[in-house]
Amino acid sequence: MKILIILLQTAFFIGTAPILSGLITKVKNNIRMRKGPSVLQPYYNLAKLFSKGEVVSDTASWIFRATPFMVISSSLAAAMLIPILVPSGSMYHMGDFLALIFILTLGRFFLALSGLDTGSSFGGMGSSREMFISSLAEPAACLVIFSLYLQFGATNISAFGGAGRLSVASLVAGIALFLVTIAETSRIPVDNQETHLELTMTHEAMVLEYSGRSLAMLEMASYIKQMIWFFLVAQIMFPVAMPASGDIAQLAFRTLWYFARILIIAAAVALVEISLAKMRLFRVADFLGFAFVLSIVATVCAILGV
């Protein structure tokens, strides 16, 4: 039964992940007074990419071909750690929040290797920048988990969802994790998903040589990763005590609540994207340094018990 719930949740997660990107684009376009593509556009893109043929570089090795599977399996494995509707409905026996970070690193490691694999300077540049940004994001993420651990006594993701009220420490930790999320999901001001200009691209540069099905899988993986990060921020910023009863009204409420708070985060990301310009790469170090400082503040707040 439990396995069934977990599998259903994962399927649900995969099914709903792309819509977030569609929504963010929609919000951004509406603020810009444009109509913009439909929110379902990511699904159309995936379908299109999946049915297209692909071009593989003759310089590339098996790493390039294996990477889409590694990336998608790491994203999905990380998604399994997320309790979506039922509080204990995740594979929490498999690992905790810390393990989740390591699992996502697995996918990133291969993505960075495949960026180097084709021999193009763009790919190498993307890999270098991606590893740079992610390594600087890691201490902030770790310290956020630390401050949550101090509050809730566990590093389990389901442990810090049901506090009922938002403490100062959680708020600051949530903001720090939001900054990390912006970096991890390649959003402005750290990276720009909309452009293929070599001066600015990071994630797009790594996947530049991918096409067709492989690209579809990589896109899917990054949608899932984005959903994971948004969920984590939402889980920290909007804790709600959930009764454990399993009736239908409860489940419906939970589903609604689950979406509502993730949508708030997505809207916040869209607002940040629209109101800021992309930073120089070396300013990103300051940006993530600020996230680190915030996470230290969160830890101090957690120590003080506020």
Partner: peptide, 15 residues
């Protein structure tokens, strides 16, 4: 906590 954070930074740089 900060030590753990720096250890995480080390891990990221090692990758």
């Amino acid at each position: 906590g900060i030590s753990a954070g720096l250890l995480a930074l080390t891990g990221g740089l090692a990758a």
